[in-house]
Computed example of a mutant assay.
Amino acid sequence: MSASFMFPPSGFGPGSQIGQDDEELNYLAMPSGVHVYEPHVPEIDDPATMAATLVFLDELQEQAQAWRVGDARLLPRHNLAPAAGAAVNDALGEGEVSARLEDAAGLVEVQETVFAGIWALRAYGGPQGQDMREQVEVSAFPKALLARAFPPRRARPDMATDMADGVVNAPAILTELFDRSENWHPRSSPHVVNLSLLPHTPEDMALLEASLGRGRLAILSRGYGNCRIEATATPHVWRVRYFNSMDTLILDTIEVSFVPEVACAAVEDIADSAARLHEICAVLREENASPRGTQA
């Protein structure tokens, strides 16, 4: 074999496509920003703040340990002193899922903590929203939000009167979704319509959105990119859209379910959260028992 074949021919390989107006190779940016749990123990110097923080976190750990599928275990925290409340916030941190619900009864903001299945809820009421209550809930997903996510069921819209030129698949999709919604029960499996794979026109999308309506609850799940979930005005029907880390839509679906699984904590997640809380409480208890201000 000729020795000349041992080397790549000139004009090929990395860098060979660079011209005078293009001085470097440009690669597609890779996704990033995946959240990873890191244990964090708050620094507390005041003995009273330490005691109140430990009482709250111990009770929360016990609630998480005792949690069973279907439970919603609530622990009020608006009665904590400001310093203890800040220490609890520091210990719990912020996780991947957040939610916002607004209706005639007021506004509810929810943030999952770094402990999956443990949710920090803040509810505002009163004429100007001046009444604020805070609590922590241990559940797969906060039940209070689901109870208020959808308005009362309304009659099916008359799609024939709203049908514009260009509508193709929307009537069939809507008939399927309304049937699933009206026949939904807690044991129903999630039913997903994948709009990314289903041919549809802009007029189809306009009719789908107008007919399903807009609900009261919006959820954002951050992880490998974002998942944005919105309740429609049709009970148990959710718009679920997935975006990559560059905020490009990669999957567009409509789901009929109790709540989309991507927003929920699994049984194993909550058990793991109980174990992590136990570790943090043990560290705080050890720090509380050790003499302060001494040097080795």
Rank of each mutant, 00 (worst) to 15 (best):
M6W: 12
G11D: 13
G15I: 15
I18Y: 07
I18Q: 08
I18G: 02
D22F: 05
N26I: 09
N26E: 07
N26V: 15
L28S: 12
A29L: 07
M30H: 10
P31G: 06
V34P: 08
H35G: 08
H35E: 13
Y37C: 04
D45E: 11
D46E: 15
D46V: 08
V55C: 06
F56L: 14
D58V: 11
D58T: 07
E59S: 14
Q61R: 08
Q63P: 00
Q63D: 09
Q65P: 00
A72C: 04
R73D: 08
R73Y: 03
H78I: 07
N79G: 03
A83C: 03
A83L: 12
D90F: 03
G93Q: 04
G93K: 00
G93C: 00
E94A: 15
G95H: 09
S98A: 15
R100P: 00
L107V: 11
E109C: 02
Q111S: 07
Q111W: 00
G117C: 10
W119H: 00
A120N: 11
L121H: 06
G126M: 06
P127S: 15
D131E: 10
M132P: 05
M132W: 03
Q135T: 08
V136A: 02
E137P: 11
S139M: 01
S139D: 15
P142W: 09
P142T: 03
P142N: 08
K143Y: 06
A147T: 02
F150E: 05
F150Y: 14
A155D: 14
M159E: 09
A160L: 12
A164W: 09
A164T: 15
I173H: 08
F178S: 03
N183R: 12
W184N: 12
P186V: 06
N194A: 13
N194R: 12
L197F: 05
L197M: 10
L197T: 11
L198R: 11
R216G: 00
L217T: 04
L217H: 01
I219Y: 04
L220V: 14
Y224T: 12
N226A: 09
C227A: 13
T232M: 03
A233K: 02
P235S: 03
V237N: 05
N244V: 01
D247P: 00
V256W: 04
P260G: 07
A265P: 08
V267G: 04
E268G: 06
I270M: 08
A271Y: 02
E279Y: 11
I280H: 09
L284F: 15
R285E: 14
R292L: 04
G293Q: 10
